[in-house]
Design a protein around this nucleic acid. Structure first.
Length: 290
DNA sequence: GGCCAGGACTCAA
DNA sequence: TTGAGTCATGGC
């Protein structure tokens, strides 16, 4: 079956594809030519979809049961942040001076979501303090061990649920080159989901992002950086700044022509004109590094 | 070979 | 509450 989703204004599928295929070995999707394969879960149902574009629409090819039409459309809508009107963000960039070229350079680029909060927290724990290439390697080892294959030829998987991870041992994760501490964090977070002390729906209902961040930071292993990253990617909040993020600091350093990392105050000043668009500014800063 | 990676925690003062 | 030390391993 094929589903159609109209492309919104200020959208460029090629930028999306670029992001999903920017040289890392990601085990959760696969880019082939101009289309993207993605295993998704809608309700209790697992699906493998393929997304491509025509002149006006995103075209979604669905393998398997098709009774979850709306769930699939919603997933893609969330994944590519299609409901967002970027014109306000672009207007600020265009009059910002040093960032005025970004809307043209990366026109139509959107935040690629990680709709599941456990997945984004797990991914950011994995990514803490190691280079991205190594992080992707560990993620693949983890997902190949404890996730579910979606397609053997494509080498892509469904991310393991917290019900699986909560019962793992530090030793098992150590074998996948997790540090003991990361293993403890990840298992601990899975248990927090399991006992309800972290619940995506409850956090999504909170209006104040700062409160959500505080709430998440109560769990061991989740700091300011991880919480902001996960809230941006999984709850679609627009006002997230992953303080201390190496890439973000490096991008600002270049833009400002500094010979050192910007201070927290300098970062704050940099973000100040972008109230309500902090997450997008972060995403575009990361984009600018490539 | 050494510094640093899409950090966070611990412990001392 | 601030700062240094620690964790682990790979990329460059």
């Amino acid at each position: 079956m094929r589903l159609h989703l109209p492309k919104p204004p200020n959208f460029n599928f090629k930028q999306i594809v670029w992001f999903l295929d920017r040289g890392y070995d990601d085990c959760l999707h696969k880019v082939e030519g101009n289309s993207v394969w993605k295993p998704i879960k809608t309700g209790n149902r697992k699906n493998l979809i393929r997304i491509e574009e025509n002149h006006s629409d995103l075209v979604i090819h669905v393998n398997g049961p098709t009774d979850q039409r709306n769930d699939i459309l919603n997933y893609v809508n969330t994944w590519f942040d299609l409901d967002r009107d970027l014109s306000g963000f672009y207007a600020i960039l265009r009059k910002s001076g040093s960032l005025e070229s970004l809307p043209d350079s990366f026109y139509g680029f959107r935040i690629i979501a990680i709709p599941d909060l456990f997945e984004s927290l797990a991914w950011s724990i994995i990514g803490q303090q190691i280079n991205l290439r190594f992080a992707y390697r560990i993620k693949r080892a983890f997902v190949e061990s404890y996730g579910e294959p979606a397609d053997d030829d494509l080498g892509i998987y469904h991310f393991p649920g917290f019900e699986v991870v909560r019962d793992l041992s530090v030793t098992e994760l150590r074998e996948l080159q997790f540090s003991s501490r990361k293993a403890e964090y990840l298992i601990g977070i899975a248990r927090s989901f399991s006992n309800g002390s972290i619940a995506q729906e409850r956090l999504a209902d909170m209006t104040d992002t700062a409160e959500v961040i505080d709430e998440l930071c109560k769990t061991r292993g989740i700091g300011e950086w991880t919480a902001n990253y996960a809230v941006m990617k999984s709850l679609g909040r627009m006002d997230c700044i992953p303080w201390g993020d190496t890439g973000m600091l490096e991008a600002i350093r270049k833009m400002r022509g500094l010979d050192r990392k910007p201070t927290r105050e300098e970062v704050q000043a940099f973000y100040k004109p972008f109230k309500g668009w902090e997450s997008y500014l972060t995403f575009y800063l990361w984009r600018s590094l490539y």
